[in-house]
Design a protein around this nucleic acid. Sequence first.
RNA 1: GGAGGAGUGGCAGAGUGGUCGAUUGCACCUGUCUUGAAAACAGGAGUCUGGGCAACCGGACCGUGAGUUCGAAUCUCACCUCCUCCGCCA
Length: 424
Amino acid sequence: MLDIKFIREQTDLIRAAASKKHLSFNVDDLVACDEKRLAILRAVEDLRAKQNAASEEVQKADAAARALLIESMKQVKDELKKKEEELETVMKEWRALMLAVPNIPDMTVPEGSSDADNVETHAWGEIKEYAFTPLDHIELMEKGDMVDFERGTKTSGFRGYFLKNDAAMLEMAIWQYVMQRWQAKGFTPMLVPSLVRRETLLGSGYLPQGEDDLYKDGNDYFAGTGEVATMYYHADEVLDDLSQPKKFIVWSPCFRKEAGSHGKDVKGLVRVHEFYKCEQVILCEASHETSVSLHEEIRRHAEEMLEELGIPYHTVINCGGDLGLGQVKKYDIEAWMPSQGKYRETHSASYFHDFQTRRLNIRYKDTEGKLRYAHSLNNTAAATPRLVTVIIENYQQADGTVKVPDVLVPFMNGKTVIGKAFRS
RNA sequence: GGAGGAGUGGCAGAGUGGUCGAUUGCACCUGUCUUGAAAACAGGAGUCUGGGCAACCGGACCGUGAGUUCGAAUCUCACCUCCUCCGCCA
């Protein structure tokens, strides 16, 4: 959500934002609606003022005058009721339009309509030449007794899976490694709810437009990311001090219907309905420079983790058409998948300015004691099992076993090789 | 799932139809006093929003949303949250 005053004054910027993000939003509709809203609001408030004044007089008046006054106020009451109904109608439209206003993308965001137009900023790591034909994670994991898709779908339906043995332990090792790694960088570790109320999703900007991708039961929703609950943690609060940003490293189960991507990644663990994610979430002071510098910081945290793990990756700036409604700028970090011969997204780092915090009403007192909306950012730390598939494919050996990345060995109880040898 | 109770300003806690945006206490800020501080005394402070260059003026906010009324913190209904007891349960 943006400030209505800002929207009124900067219609050109909003128009440009909508066009860069390839959204069909029309500011002029909102501005017209807002004018209507203010006119009616003024009428309503004038009537209320009249009512308040009369209410005071009623108390002082004698019986005869009082009866007369009350009689005349009945008309005001009816009039007010009519105006209030008008206002409610306009407000409904106004609120819906306000929720559809896109945030302004940063100047450095490239033009483009889809992820095909994202621009690589840099790549890291050498793409390994294998002396054998690299297998995909599905074959490696099935033959290594690390996954069971058949019983997974039997139990859970399409995209269901069981992780077993070394893969189960590897996944938990990753969580442990990640939570410790980020805690050491000053992030507050949290396990947060995945079962959340509708307001939380409106606040972080996943609703109203993302309804189709969410599992729900009445007003209870299953969050697609820990960001949702984490952002709501401080909702409706005034934080004393944001001179130091609040940084969270959050673990949570994540649920996504993956509506509209039924044809993509239909096999394997790259795209599943139920997974786990460690997420970086930050609240900071309302400064563009601070947001930008923290954005770079959380991007680097994730890149450095992939470097520690020895996974080749590249980073792209997402183009306008690939940005969400609230995002100012986004980097995707994509890890190399040997079986596919291409990079696949493992991380997504974005910042929002005060787009989310306005909806969530998260404010703080600045050094002058003025109340301001905080800024927010987030980036993946590790999404599993997707990251498991990346590790398994990149660390596969000729015999079908998988080497454990050095940094994970301590979290695997010293185990250095996982899976089973099934070829020579 | 069943039965009761409760939600008021930063906190505590009054207020049960009309100068109540709200008594009071604590905490907070500013004066007076003091070498300074404490104490005492006096005063001031909330948020959102409309108009105005501004001083200022108007509206809203007592868990949320509807309703009754000329008028609602106060009455009615629904919802949310918390507490107590019973039942069930990893």
